[in-house]
Design a protein around this nucleic acid. Structure first.
Length: 272
DNA sequence: AGCCAGGGTCTGC
DNA sequence: GCAGACCATGGC
């Protein structure tokens, strides 16, 4: 399949964007090459001659979904110009200037962040991988799609045992059943204001404010969502003294992504 | 061995 | 309304 030019490489840091904890389906497969399954297609994204290219999507299907997935419709230069008015943000942005926020599918995002609770990134990745391998469709040799909510809703708790997801298994089933039945839906989440959308998602067992905010930011077009996990709480208290500056409030979602990647990698390298 | 991980629920006050 | 125990699993 032909390759599609996405953007210049200065505006898309692949390593940072794929491993900033917003998605869990991408793998590094070369020096500057990554692959992942998105919406039932195996994609390759790689850097060459200062540009970032995509393979795996027919040109006729690139718009609107895949172009939007990589957030090509957002002017990051303008967003960053506002963010860096905060000194803390200026450091975070300088740490990974090519960070991009992806627009992912609703159910996959919801399910993934239910799995993320009280869990770490490598194990989240491993559980999601097993879920796809067991119940998704093989879209390329060894590569599986994310199983639909309908498929997961038809499973029993014991079917999920091989995932070793622990107490999260029952939450996955409840979410799948509510999405499959239409009790919880992406359109409703998009239509509602942020706080109402959070409440809408919290009717699912095992979904609290943090998981809801992640789902809304990454999978339901809510750019003002600001998920606070243990790392982000540290940032808010230590760096912002409990109050987010205007610059952050102008673009909370993207700001949060910069901050999360910055604080995690910076602190890990300091402790390592 | 004990603590932590992109948390949430349930109980007791 | 809030603190604290508890929830499975794996890496360090």
């Amino acid at each position: 399949m032909e390759e599609i030019y996405l953007i210049d490489s200065a505006r898309f840091d692949l390593e940072a964007s794929f491993f900033a904890g917003q998605c869990f389906r991408w793998k590094k497969v070369g020096d500057t090459a990554y692959e992942g399954v998105v919406k039932g297609r195996l994609l390759q994204v790689y850097e060459r001659d200062g540009g970032v290219y995509l393979q795996g999507v027919p040109k006729g299907e690139f718009y609107p979904f895949y172009a939007h997935y990589f957030d090509l419709d957002t002017d990051y230069d303008a967003v960053k110009a506002t963010l860096v008015k905060s000194k803390v943000m200026a450091r975070a942005v300088a740490y990974c200037p090519g960070m991009r926020l992806f627009h992912q599918e609703f159910w996959e995002t919801l399910c993934t962040f239910i799995i993320s609770q009280n869990n770490n990134i490598p194990r989240i990745t491993s559980i999601v991988e097993k879920l796809c391998a067991l119940f998704g469709q093989e879209v390329a040799p060894g590569h599986f799609s994310f199983p639909s909510a309908q498929v997961v809703a038809a499973l029993q708790l014991e079917d999920l045992a091989p995932l070793k997801a622990g107490f999260r298994g029952k939450y996955i089933l409840d979410a799948a059943q509510k999405v499959a039945a239409g009790t919880v839906c992406a359109q409703t989440c998009r239509r509602l204001a942020l706080e109402e959308a959070v409440e809408h998602l919290c009717q699912i067992k095992g979904v609290g404010v943090k998981v809801a905010q992640c789902t809304l930011l990454y999978g339901a077009e809510h750019p003002t969502a600001f998920p606070e996990d243990v790392w982000m709480k540290r940032v808010v208290t230590r760096y912002f003294k409990g109050r987010l500056p205007k610059a952050v409030l102008a673009h909370p979602g993207i700001a949060q992504l910069f901050l999360f990647y910055y604080i995690r990698n910076k602190e890990i390298s300091e402790n390592g």
